[in-house]
Simulated assay, not measured.
Amino acid sequence: MDDQGMVSMFQGLMASGLTGFLGCPAVIYEDSLVDFFENASVRDGVIISTVAGQLVEISEEWFAESFDLPVGGLGDLSAIPKDVIFYARSIVSLSGEPVSLSGGKNQMKIEFRLLCDIMAKAISVKAGSFNAITVEKFSLMTAIVCGVQMNWAIILFRTFKKMVTPGTKQAKGYAVQISLMLENIPNLDLGESSEFPASKILTDKTVHRFVSLNDKAGAEEATGEPKPKAASKKRRAADVGAAVAKKKRTTKKRVSLSKVNLDWMVVAQESVPIQMIEGSTAPAADDTVDQPAAVDVFSADRPAEEIDRIDVRPRAHNR
């Protein structure tokens, strides 16, 4: 590689003794892996499981021999001296100031961002954000950067046991490594194999892709430009109101008879008493039906021609 910082980081990774663990053949047995984790448990420090109905036992010694892991040195990450960790915080820093152990990996140089991903995904295999720096991940990085001798057999096998322990927030990992160990068990039917995803294997191509993606993300953070958000397909209430005109509801009020406006009624100023008079009993010449009696509402002194023009039919009150 042309990047001297990236080359130096990989050289330190190889010198740590993790080459055998990280350089396994990229073949996995998915069905057997599922079977292994479903039936696995820890008994007396040994991982026991059944695969295709056959008993499988993995001890720490066999695990260390399979990948030629160092068995000498510090067996706990918390045993790394504090001054060494502080020194590493300045070495990996992008700005020169010691990185914060509660911040993000964008504080670090590009080669150490990649190292952080390797430690998080291939060594620690913890569930959670891979972009955040934690004390555990930075301690792993410090051991590589500063060349601290570690007992990787104990550290990695401890993580392996957490994977098969119920109730722990530990992701299931080591797929390639477990597949390689299962291949060494005689007469074990593993089923069909599949290649490990090429995008997860570090090659010159994938490393350059990692650099380009991180450079782009760093440029966006430096300019402060917000990431474009995808347009929402949901229509706002204002848009819906503009597109569909709202209809006003009208109600008709029923008027009660008890609340009729009395001003509409016609009230006579003076009342005239109705006088009943006897009608003529003589029938008409050509009429065989009795005629109703005539009603005179005026005085007898009134002229007959005026009486003939008066409509004496009863009038109904306006309501």
Results as ranks from 00 to 15, higher is better:
S93F: 02
V7P: 04
M265D: 10
F67I: 02
K105G: 11
L156R: 01
R319K: 04
V176K: 13
F130M: 09
F138A: 06
G20F: 01
T19G: 12
A127T: 13
T168Q: 15
V260Q: 11
D2S: 15
R309I: 02
W62L: 04
K109A: 07
K172W: 03
A284Q: 01
D189M: 01
R315P: 02
A198Q: 11
A40T: 05
D44Q: 07
K234S: 13
V145T: 01
T134S: 11
T142V: 01
A122D: 13
V56G: 12
V312F: 15
V92S: 10
I85Q: 14
L257T: 02
G191T: 01
G72N: 12
V34Q: 09
V125D: 05
P292I: 02
Q275S: 09
I154W: 13
E305F: 09
D290R: 13
Q149V: 10
Q107V: 03
T50W: 08
A222G: 08
S93E: 07
A26Q: 09
F10P: 03
L22V: 00
I277S: 14
A284G: 09
F157Q: 10
A26M: 05
F160Q: 05
N151M: 11
M276G: 02
L101K: 06
N184Y: 12
F21Q: 07
A243H: 02
E60C: 00
D44E: 08
F21T: 00
G5R: 04
A143W: 02
I185R: 14
P25D: 15
A64V: 01
A222E: 15
A231I: 15
M108T: 02
T159A: 11
A127K: 12
E60R: 01
I47R: 00
R309P: 05
L69R: 01
T251M: 15
E225A: 14
F36E: 08
K216D: 09
I274V: 11
K200R: 08
E305A: 05
A127E: 08
L115P: 03
H208Q: 14
A217Q: 00
I307T: 07
I185N: 10
